[in-house]
Design a protein around this nucleic acid. Sequence first.
RNA 1: GCCGACGUAGCUCAGCAGGUAGAGCAAUCGAUUCGUAAUCGAUAGGUCGCAGGUUCGAUUCCUGCCGUCGGCACCA
Length: 640
Amino acid sequence: MPAVSLPDGSRREFDQPVTIMDVAKDIGTGLAKAAVAGKVNGALVDVRHEIDDDAEVAIVTDRDPEGVEIIRHSTAHLMAQAVKELFPDAQVTIGPTIENGFYYDFAYDRGFTPEDLEKIEKRMKELAKQDLPVERSTMDRDEAVEYFRNMGEEYKAEIIESIPQGETISLYRQGDFIDLCRGPHIPSTGKLKAFKLTSVAGAYWRGDSDNEMLQRIYGTAWPNKQQLEEHLHRLKEAERRDHRKIGAELDLFSIQDEAGGGLVFWHPKGARIRREIENFWYEMHEKAGYDFVVSPHIANLELWHTSGHAEFYADSMYEPMQDEHQAFQLKPMNCPFHVLMYKDRLHSYRDLPIRWGEMGTVYRREMSGALHGLMRVRGFTQDDAHIFCREDQIEDEVMGVIDLTLETLRTFGFEDFDVNLSTRPDDAVGSDEIWDHATRALRGAIEKKGLEYTLDEGGGAFYGPKIDIKIHDAIGRQWQCSTIQLDFNLPERFDMEYVAEDNERRRPIMIHRALLGSVERFFGVLIEHYAGHFPTWLAPVQASVLTITERQDDYARDVARRLREQGFRIEPDLRNEKIGFKIREHTLKRVPYLLVLGDREMEEGKVAVRTRDGEDLGTMSLDELSERLGKEVASRGTGT
RNA sequence: GCCGACGUAGCUCAGCAGGUAGAGCAAUCGAUUCGUAAUCGAUAGGUCGCAGGUUCGAUUCCUGCCGUCGGCACCA
């Protein structure tokens, strides 16, 4: 007879087989009410699952991540049930959970409209209210194929056919709706209290663009209404921070239809920020021992054959331009150019490591549907650099890049990082020895830096292992900008060499690395991270000089001039407007400091200082102000 | 590229059973000279994304194209 041990270490004995629900009830009625599923020896099961032998058992509630997952998955089923009732011709396919919610793909001869979504959601709520029991049953594989085919569910039948023969299939029934599912599921639909359908979109059957397109409905689901509301609020917050919106409001950049999608125009204020980013970048790299190079935008197509890009990456490259003698290729990458420069002369092992950085602008073909503000564009500037080094220098060099990366990202206000190490894929170039050595060096560098990391086995590029670093922005979203990639391919293809101590010719290792990735994309991430509130060192206008009447005009011009002479970015606003109006406008433009000048300040030769956050710093002299600004800018502080 | 939605003044949006359009903000001009998040008034501004079609007549209906947005696929 079963004895169950619980997560807190306690044991309970039963004199007959019991279900998860029985165990939960035995512990307490509150827990029984909250139970959405259970765990037996680590495996998730339904609450009706029967335990007939000794086992480690846990009750899963909506407080557990797995519980929330189950709620989302069950909500997807609930949606499918509602859709089948309202649109009997729609065929069900798959309905997995995703971050914050779920989707379900249906085969239907037309798209679902927002009105359809409302109807579906309404029906879902009714079905939830009926508190229909969700019951599991099993069926033989072949029998299940037959069963779904008879119901006209061709897609489901196809899915089941891909399951090995002889396996038992589990089915879940709620009301008249039956779906193939591994489970587990909530015990009854009444557990689903907080969900919302969010959008419809097309999606390919089995994710393959050669297949037909299905209708996908996205939804979000939570254990309770409050969490749902919080989630919807986060979505609103993300919308508020949208870099495309803020970029237009603050006049930072634009994308011009007449010029074409995916090409960024940096307006003066955005270009100002970009210059600050770049200045900082150059400064950091100079300190870290980099030299800077500049390479052309196009080059002989032959070069791209040598590098292999013309073959492997043809889809992402623009068509070559033909002149009378040769074809030129617009560059999608900078690396071959740096390799050519390296090969321009013979290098000694004493020269290594060589670190060459370039803000290199590249152009890549992107399909129209892929374009997205600054995040996905056709022309962008990589903060690129290549390190050419000996094998025994890899670890030190990678540690150096990690230091540089983290310091740079921290300066932009990013504090949390996820490090990912990707190792050898199946179709790789280079010997096992070099892969082993290099991968060990990358891992060593990460570990010596005391960083946690996740391993992506087989996730490396065909030409070498890599480290990716993801940042978390102010509202917790992750962005991957930084990457450190080893390359055994290009040195080989270009026959790169250095002369070793023993006078033998050896192959250098090439490290590609970018900290910001694309300056355009990074700028987009920064805009959203700061919600446009750039710290003073980055702010396009650091202080606005606001006059109360035209009596202060001359004084205001003088204040602006004097601060500008000290290197600050100052804009006077002498318009004949009320001070409240000016404060509002410049606050909305996220100007860090507003300097209000009236007769009183003019007489004292001071300025009244207000921050964009509405804080009144009182009046101060220009010297006091410039000291404060100077410190803030020099420290590249992240706040105001 | 694929599915869907959308495209009206610089911006945000209203309107239209088919009879060539309207508001707020911005802009311009004028008045106001004002103390910490919107002063008042006037003026100007539109080939209603583009091209065809239906119609006596199209911004409105239909078709195609372009673009934007949400996804999918793609992202060295």
